[in-house]
Design a protein around this nucleic acid. Structure first.
Lengths: 139, 139
DNA sequence: GTCGGTGCAAATGCTTTGCATTGAT
DNA sequence: ATCAATGCAAAGCATTTGCACCGAC
């Protein structure tokens, strides 16, 4: 698959915007993270790699990446936004362990089928979804 | 079914808390609304019925109602929290029209079955879920 | 050389909290 | 009478924005 940085670069060019080191580093760090993250956590990872990027730039770049369809927001609680890579992937469904706070990505193609059927029955076209299951250990 | 105000009253008593007019009016207004709402909107509805309740009390009561299991948060976007009645109801799944911003409650028992199966396969016990489908009109 | 990008600090908007007063029990 | 609840205004937090300087193209 085409590397994400190339996708990003192309989208930026289309919009007459620039591919800056900050933007490159942010995307790179997100790819390395390969997990759900929040803005703070991303900035922390950047710092670990000795990249100083301001919060403002982090947020501005997250918005750009969303608009480019490279990442998407995941709403887990109402405290703050979480994000995850989205480009070229099936949206990830989440299994949230209420007892341990653990967030497990699951892949449930049947959910997608069901989603598509529900839309079809109503003459609608699915554009995306958010499926989160909250569970605890049995017993 | 037992009226919700009775459930609320009982929970409050259990916690050594009081059943005040403000709390009664807030719950009543939520029941009349019978829809997804945000804090602002709830306060507006209260005002229409000539009930003056402060934002602080609105938020404090929403939290109480959540703890009592009478309402639950619905995360639709990251801007602000939405709420809906939850007590004694199957959690409502949402079909969100991206083109019109309309939010449609759907009832999809198959989603629940699927959810339960996914949990069972992992030795977990489902406690709740959040299913939101984003769609646009076909064509 | 031009715009657009960045960092900083200030502003925003939702939600929460401290405190003095009011009111349910 | 007591102890919790209310309203108000201030505080908190995540996120956004204005502005002067900087740098990708």
């Amino acid at each position: 698959m085409e590397p994400l940085c190339a996708v990003f670069r192309r989208r930026l060019k289309e919009l007459g915007q620039k591919y800056t080191p900050e933007r490159a580093q942010i995307l790179d760090t997100i790819i390395k993270l390969d997990d759900i993250f929040e803005a703070d956590q991303l900035q922390e990872e950047l710092r670990k790699a000795d990249f100083r990027v301001s919060k403002a730039t982090v947020y501005r770049t997250l918005k750009l990446l969303q608009e480019a369809g490279i990442i998407q927001q995941v709403l887990v609680d109402s405290e703050q936004a979480n994000y995850q890579l989205a480009y070229g992937r099936r949206p990830r469904d989440l299994l949230i362990r209420v007892d341990t706070q653990e967030i497990i990505s699951i892949d449930a193609p049947e959910l997608i089928e069901l989603r598509d059927r529900i839309c079809r029955e109503r003459g609608l076209e699915p554009q995306g979804h958010r499926f989160q299951i909250f569970a605890v250990k049995k017993g």
